[in-house]
């Protein structure tokens, strides 16, 4: 058994059990329903700000974007304004495409190595990671936005419209939300990649598996409450509203499954700032993407630039003067 994924799996299962048993067996609704969620939100907001502030307080000494297209040079050569931007607007478009469409990942290729007389290396377009990542992030976003219905009274029209779209395929009652299915499928794909792709498996750490299992746990408990155990939605909404308005009160008739769901969400929020999940914030600050490639046109200032010892022309000439004169090279001082 591979510890790298068995331990996170067991960990997530224990988290689930802890909340479920804590509520069903020890009546600790106040802990899993009130204390942990509040604590998680504090840790999330505080931690997120702390991390972003930490990055922002590091200097950006050089303007070193990775250029992925033709530079701006001669007027008759067509510049690639997005992949090699020289203006703020170009950078903006590049960042929007990067953040919302994962443009760099879209380029992904897969190397093949023909083990025959040609020994040819070939590189084919590899779209699956991009599709999986995009499906995962967007379905997660839709699920999150749908949950706003529990936090807002009245439920805003845009949330209801999103729900309508998400449930547009009507099978049985309650209607199926596509986002939940896509989310589970995408996470399972990403997990399978980590376990079965030799290269990805080799580089993966326990901290890569943990969030995946946690999200699977969250999605699975959410789906079971909606479709199978049919949690009392009205009580849940009242409870969430009591948290939002800082008058927390434990509802009647909501079982351990709900608290397990809520607890795992709390863990995810608290965990986010201390983990790689901070890529959510980091992508905005990545200097190879968010800077214009105009370093020769517009001087970039390094806040810690300092003077260095150089070997001056004078020292050079002093060293080589005789040889230079002999070779007929001009010198500043004749002797």
């Amino acid at each position: 058994m591979n510890q790298k994924y068995m331990l996170p799996l067991i960990g997530v299962f224990l988290l689930f059990l802890l909340a479920y048993a804590g509520v069903e067996g020890a009546n600790m609704q106040w802990a899993f329903g009130i204390i942990f969620p509040y604590l998680a939100v504090i840790l999330f907001i505080g931690g997120f700000i702390y991390r972003v502030y930490g990055w922002a307080s590091s200097a950006v000494p050089f303007r070193i974007p990775t250029t992925c297209g033709q530079q701006k040079s001669l007027p008759w050569i067509k510049q690639n304004c997005i992949d090699n931007p020289d203006t703020a607007s170009g950078v903006f478009v590049r960042m929007v495409l990067e953040i919302f469409l994962f443009r760099s990942l879209f380029r992904n290729t897969k190397a093949g190595f023909a083990r025959d007389e040609t020994n040819r290396l070939s590189f084919s377009w590899e779209i699956f990671l991009w599709v999986g990542a995009l499906a995962f992030h967007y379905s997660f976003l839709v699920v999150l936005l749908r949950h706003l219905r529990f936090f807002l009274t009245p439920v805003p029209a845009c949330v209801r419209f999103l729900e309508y779209l998400d449930g547009i395929i009507q099978i049985g009652l309650p209607g199926i939300f596509l986002s939940g299915i896509v989310l589970i499928a995408a996470v399972l794909f990403l997990l399978a990649r980590r376990i079965f792709d030799g290269k990805v498996s080799y580089i993966s750490l326990a901290s890569d598996y943990f969030p995946l299992f946690l999200i699977i746990g969250i999605a699975a408990t959410g789906i079971s409450m909606r479709y199978f155990t049919k949690v009392d939605i009205v009580s849940v909404k009242e409870f969430i509203m009591s948290l939002v308005t800082f008058h927390p009160s434990i509802p009647e008739g909501v079982g351990g499954l709900f608290y397990a769901h809520l607890f795992m969400v709390s863990v995810l929020f608290a965990y986010l700032p201390i983990s790689k999940l901070m890529h959510i914030g980091g992508i905005f600050l990545s200097p190879t993407r968010n800077m214009a490639n105009n370093t020769r046109a517009k001087r970039h200032i390094n806040p810690w630039n300092y003077n260095v010892k150089t070997h001056t022309y004078e020292e050079y000439e002093n060293h080589f003067r005789d040889k230079m004169i002999e070779a007929g090279l001009p010198v500043d001082k004749k002797e």
Partner: peptide
């Protein structure tokens, strides 16, 4: 140092 998710791309 902080944000690599080890996606393997």
């Amino acid at each position: 140092m902080d944000i690599c998710v080890r996606c393997g791309a």
